[in-house]
Amino acid sequence: MAEHYKISAALVAEERSYMLKLDGYSRTKALVKTGECVSSAPFSVGGHRWAVIYYLNSIVCALYLVLDPAGAKDVKAKLTISVLDKNGEPVPSFSCTIPTHTFSRGVQHCVYSVSRADLEGSVHLRDDCLTVRCDVTVTEEICNEETKVPPSDLHCHLGDLLKNKDAADLTIQVGGQSFSAHRCVLAARSPVFKAELLGAMKENSGTPIEICDMEANVFKSLLHFIYTDKLPPVLESASNNGAGQLAMAGHLLVAADRYDIGRLKLICEEKLCNQIDSKMVATSLALAEQHGFHDLKEACLKFLAAPSNLEAMMASDGFEHLKSSCPTALKELIARILPPEQKAAKDLVMAI
Rank of each mutant, 00 (worst) to 15 (best):
K323Q: 15
G24M: 04
P208C: 02
M214P: 07
N240P: 05
H321K: 14
T102C: 14
I337F: 14
R49H: 10
Y25V: 15
A62I: 15
G159T: 07
S8R: 13
E15F: 05
I276N: 00
V107E: 05
I81W: 11
L222P: 01
K271N: 08
S58F: 12
D85Y: 05
P99V: 03
E236V: 12
S26A: 11
P339F: 05
K323I: 13
L223G: 00
L235E: 01
G318H: 01
V149I: 15
M314P: 03
M350F: 05
I98G: 05
R126M: 11
S324W: 10
S40G: 03
L125S: 01
A216M: 02
S17K: 11
H4M: 08
D229Y: 00
N144G: 09
S95N: 12
G71M: 06
V234D: 15
A117D: 11
D169K: 04
S113G: 07
L31E: 08
L253N: 13
P151W: 05
F219M: 05
K279P: 00
S180L: 09
L301Q: 14
K346L: 12
S316N: 00
L333D: 06
A72T: 15
N144S: 14
R126P: 00
S44M: 14
H4K: 12
S325D: 12
K194W: 04
L198F: 04
Q275C: 14
L285C: 04
C110A: 10
F225I: 08
D128C: 07
S152P: 05
A335K: 00
V281T: 13
K271M: 15
N241A: 15
A200F: 07
E120R: 15
F219R: 09
S113W: 11
A117I: 10
F43G: 04
Q275E: 11
A351L: 09
L333Q: 03
T28Y: 05
E196V: 09
I98R: 14
H224T: 04
L246A: 14
T28M: 13
E15D: 14
A286V: 06
C326F: 04
H101K: 10
K265D: 08
V83P: 07
F43M: 01
H4G: 08
L231M: 09
L264H: 11
Y54I: 06
A41Q: 11
C61G: 03
K194Q: 15
G176Y: 03
Q108P: 08
L11C: 12
A351Y: 01
L56D: 01
V149F: 15
V32M: 15
V254P: 02
Q290W: 02
A351P: 01
R258L: 10
E270M: 06
M350N: 06
K148C: 12
A247H: 14
R16V: 11
